[in-house]
């Protein structure tokens, strides 16, 4: 579903991402670990088509991102570290706005259903986003992704700054999305969360994907020491 072949991005002499080879299947959650500047966000931006690769290619559903930046938007959804959206609009209005721009015309009831799926409590639907907690905004972000019926979900440090309960809820939701066949790429600092939720974990350092581990084969502690050794 998601594929990188020798994906490389250089800014002048600085190599932000070096020959990344990665393939993520439908239903799989791939967690990218690494320090700031390791190339996680560059990878996500390359898949989103916001930057052009220097070498190699990124493709989604077999379609090259660099060549068809508009086409691949159909398949993917993106949730940033902080979902800001429109603070003046209610949760429901935000979802309505973004899903209409994705070409969907949902009824109020369907929109409410999507927010419920994303784990937002019903009494928050009609409150302005300005009063939402970070976790609640994140859930609206998920609802927007679900509303798009995206086959690929790209998450950039989605759980940073969430309280443990919100973080746990978040994990459950993306796991259920994966169970429905969504391919998920998640950049994160949270080793514990990565081990909990991901099927595979990659550790990046200075633009290189140093190691890829099957999450079921490693304990959180082992993962932590491997991470510390790598970076």
């Amino acid at each position: 579903m998601l594929e990188a072949k020798n994906l490389t991005k250089r800014y002048g002499s600085h190599t932000a991402l070096n020959k990344l080879n990665l393939s993520i299947q439908p239903g799989e959650i791939f967690a990218l670990l690494g320090q700031n500047g390791a190339g996680k966000t560059t990878t996500i931006n390359l898949f989103l088509g916001f930057i052009e690769p220097t070498e190699g290619s990124a493709s989604i559903n077999g379609i090259s991102v660099a060549e068809n930046p508009q086409e691949i938007k159909k398949y993917l959804a993106y949730i940033p570290e902080t979902v800001m959206l429109y603070p003046n609009l209610t949760g429901l209005e935000n979802l309505e706005y973004f899903s209409s721009l994705a070409g969907f015309d949902y009824s109020k009831k369907e929109l409410g259903g999507l927010l419920t799926t994303a784990g937002l409590q019903a009494q928050a639907f009609d409150q302005r986003l300005a009063g939402y907690s970070k976790g609640m905004r994140q859930k609206v972000g998920i609802a927007i992704a679900v509303a798009k019926k995206a086959k690929v979900l790209l998450l950039d440090e989605p759980t940073s700054g969430l309280d443990p309960k919100a973080s746990n809820e978040f994990s459950q939701i993306i796991q259920s999305l994966a169970a429905n066949g969504t391919a998920i790429l998640m950049a994160t600092h949270d080793i514990f969360r990565a081990k909990e939720v991901a099927s595979r974990i990659g550790i990046m350092k200075e633009g290189n994907l140093e190691s890829v581990i099957d999450a079921s084969m490693i304990s959180a502690n082992e993962l932590e020491s491997l991470y510390l050794k790598t970076v």
Binding site: Y78, I79, V83, L85
Partner: peptide
């Protein structure tokens, strides 16, 4: 600045 543009651009509108 607040990252909304990225989300907007990931919808269908160009």
């Amino acid at each position: 600045q607040n990252g909304v543009l990225k989300i907007l651009l990931c919808q269908k509108a160009s």
